[in-house]
Amino acid sequence: MMFFEVLKLLFKKPFTNKFPVKYAPKNTLGLIEKVQKGEVKINPPVDTPPGFRGKLEYDIDECVGCGLCAQVCPSHAIELVKDKNWVIMHCKDGAKLAAPLKIRIYVSRCIFCAQCVDVCPRKCLKMSDEFLLANEDKLAEDLIIPGP
């Protein structure tokens, strides 16, 4: 019987984690602004574990543009692009050595499988613990890595 159980629960603290605030705000953007100004304190989210798979981090300087990540990406979120700043380094034996390609990651397509992190030979991709990625615009600036 649930009769006694529900009465017990009535005096128990709710199980819900009240993130970010207890009730839905009237104006979400307003709330974010207030939080940034420090006027409102938000309840913290549940901590992410050490191996969490969140938004990708990309070290563009380390990348050699091998394109393996784009090959294994299941959702085709990684695009190979020409590096704007690339320079051909002339080696002593006359060979050209340079990385003419870099990648661009569309986070709105990413499914967070971390397969690109595993395959990267230069270890220049990393999963951060950032997970608040909702946005109205799927091509927003912070959803494309690397940013402009």
Partner: peptide, 18 residues
């Protein structure tokens, strides 16, 4: 929730375990 947290700890995400 407990098993979801456990899965998150072991695999990195709550639902899709990859």
């Amino acid at each position: 929730e407990k098993v979801m947290d456990l899965i998150e700890y072991l695999t990195g995400n709550r639902v899709t375990k990859a």
